[in-house]
Simulated assay, not measured.
Amino acid sequence: MTPKKPKRTPAKRKGDRLAEYRGKRDASRTPEPVPDEKALPHGDDDTFVVQEHHARSLHWDLRFERDGVLVSWAVPKGLPWSPETNHLAVHTEDHPLEYATFEGDIPRGEYGGGEVVIWDRGTYETEKWSEREVKVVIHGSRVSGRYVLFRTRGKNWMIHRMDPPADPGAEPLPERLRPMRPVRRARLPRDREAWGFEFAFGGRRLLAYVEGGRTRFTDGRGRAVDGPGRLGSRLGAALGARPALLDGELAVLEGRETYMVFDVPHLDGRPLLDVPYGERRETLDGLELSGPLWRTAPWYPGDGDPVREAARAQDLPGVVAKRLDSPYRPGEESDAWRLIPVGSR
């Protein structure tokens, strides 16, 4: 009996820049473009795209059109906005030019499974391109300027902004902040139209520092603490590239620990400490933070009596009255915030 010859894998076409890309994807299962093995389309070598990729770990994919493909890097923390900070950039396989317009959900279980959205796109100019260093000038709607990528080891590169900060007035998140605290009072304020009212959930105070899709936490005394479960990574993914400092409490609601967010002292490179409470709450509402482990706490400007009665009905410890014009004073116990137990009249 003649033994069967082993099945041979077809040889890769010489110079096939997309062989690795095709080998990782099943065109029948992913909505990503998987072009046939044929001559590569060519453009003007001036297109760039940044895609926000909600895969197992949130990251941003930076791609430059060059020689008929999109040369690609995965950037876990996004592009640096200042020359003071370099970010890791992991070189990945070349992608087809069609990927520059791709948005969609890659099925779970497939390579890179998760949602892909276009974060920015535009044109770029090449100043230098070698195997170890790439210098470009980017012209996008959200990011512009001179950047250099330089190889450090293997597939690991670093990306550095060569220009001054994109937003010179932007400030980094504080390293840590002690939260503002309410004073305890027996009664609701009389001039109630000047106040907003929130539920007091009786949970653990946590401040969340969200940047580059990652989150760290401090407690009510400003000490670094671990966040519960997967709250940090999921909350970071919800905010994406927007840096934010959130104030809230970790409470048990309907049998589940939920991070109830009630303030935003810092957002998008801008401290909001001197912004009135009412405006900060409107800004927070605009973030539409709602997920399996977090929620924007409700607030009610005006009459606090219905809020207190609702708190009593839900067996909550009380309500917090906050002056609509009050700034955020870190570490202070302020009469502009008042904790009123539900049993008070």
Rank of each mutant, 00 (worst) to 15 (best):
L231K: 09
E257K: 09
V252Y: 14
E288R: 06
F201N: 02
E198D: 04
L246C: 03
F197I: 01
T296F: 11
G220Y: 01
R234W: 02
Y209W: 00
W195C: 03
L272V: 06
D247M: 03
A241R: 13
E282H: 11
G196C: 04
G286L: 06
G213I: 00
V264D: 11
A238N: 08
R204N: 11
L207V: 04
D226T: 11
R295K: 07
Y209L: 00
A200S: 14
E211H: 10
L250F: 10
P228Q: 13
S290W: 10
L284W: 00
R190T: 15
L235H: 12
V225S: 04
E193S: 15
W195R: 02
T218D: 14
D285S: 13
L207R: 00
A186C: 10
G227D: 01
D274F: 11
V264W: 13
G202F: 02
R242V: 11
R223P: 01
D219L: 07
L239I: 07
G222N: 09
T296P: 02
A186S: 13
R190F: 08
T218I: 02
D247P: 02
R190W: 05
D303K: 05
L253V: 13
R187E: 13
G212Y: 09
G196Y: 00
L287S: 07
Y259F: 14
M260Q: 14
R192A: 10
P276E: 04
T258V: 14
E193C: 10
Y209R: 02
L287I: 08
P292R: 09
L239P: 00
V252Q: 15
L267T: 05
P276N: 05
R216M: 07
A241F: 12
G269W: 00
L188R: 04
P271D: 07
G302E: 03
R234K: 13
L235E: 08
F201R: 04
T283E: 10
L235V: 03
A238K: 11
G248T: 07
T218F: 01
P189L: 03
F199A: 04
E282Y: 03
P276Q: 03
D226S: 14
M260T: 03
E288I: 04
Y277C: 13
